[in-house]
Amino acid sequence: MTRPPTAAQRRVIDAADPVTGRLRGTEAQLEALVKRGLAFRHPRPPHDHFLTPAGHRIREEVPEAAPEPTVRTPSTAAGVFAARVGGEEDVPETGPSRVREVHSAWQGLLELRRMTNPDGATDRPCGWERSHLVQAAALALEAAGHRPAGPDSTGQPAGQVSPGYRVIATPQPEAVAVYEPEVDALRACAATLEKAGWQAGEYTEPRTRVRYLLASPRRA
């Protein structure tokens, strides 16, 4: 069994950029994380270090000493950016500062694509997005200016009456569902996701007749 990271290593991991996974630390700290498979050194200048998928999983774990044994999510971790998936009770700050924050996160994600996709492509989702489907799809929508559903949305497709999008995980591998009660807005979400490198198809639930998108990251 792999030993858990030391307290110093955990601090470096926790301080990583929430979107790109870029690390900051001493050369010795970064090299130790590389040896443990929690980070990698990018081959191209400036040779920054980034979290591997294993490092991201460590970052998202709740430390054993946490006061509440609940799973920490980006939207509840103080100081960590989280795109709005729709229907949140704890709505992030809105206004110009939120717009700047979302824009910065999106630019960071494009840089992560460039750094981690084998061909350096920025028009195709990267590994981080495939392991964070809901967050990645929501970031693409929010960065393009779409409005997320308000907290009165129940999360149940048939009961969603709040205008705005809502991104929901599905049992299907590498696929999320996007609900938006306004048909034109739903189709605009599909266009945005396709432009961001996703495949999006429009479907109707047989029982409720609710329209929704099924979206997955494009591979080529």
Rank of each mutant, 00 (worst) to 15 (best):
44 R>P: 02
86 G>F: 00
215 A>R: 04
192 T>A: 08
202 E>I: 14
103 H>G: 11
181 P>H: 05
74 P>W: 00
6 T>Y: 02
117 N>P: 14
143 A>D: 12
15 A>F: 03
14 D>N: 11
78 A>T: 11
65 A>R: 15
22 R>I: 06
145 G>K: 05
76 T>S: 12
124 R>K: 14
216 S>F: 07
35 K>Q: 15
167 V>P: 05
24 R>T: 09
117 N>I: 03
168 I>E: 08
140 A>K: 06
42 H>K: 08
117 N>V: 14
118 P>G: 01
96 P>Y: 08
79 G>R: 09
187 R>I: 11
161 V>D: 15
182 E>H: 08
7 A>R: 14
130 R>T: 13
27 E>A: 15
26 T>K: 06
190 A>G: 15
121 A>G: 12
9 Q>H: 07
211 R>Q: 13
89 E>K: 05
202 E>A: 13
138 A>V: 07
55 G>R: 00
16 A>M: 06
188 A>M: 02
28 A>I: 14
29 Q>K: 01
129 E>A: 10
174 E>Y: 08
9 Q>R: 09
129 E>M: 05
67 P>Q: 03
162 S>T: 06
29 Q>H: 09
168 I>W: 00
59 R>C: 02
197 G>Q: 06
44 R>A: 13
176 V>A: 05
174 E>N: 11
117 N>Y: 12
10 R>S: 12
18 P>V: 10
31 E>S: 12
211 R>V: 04
179 Y>V: 09
97 S>D: 15
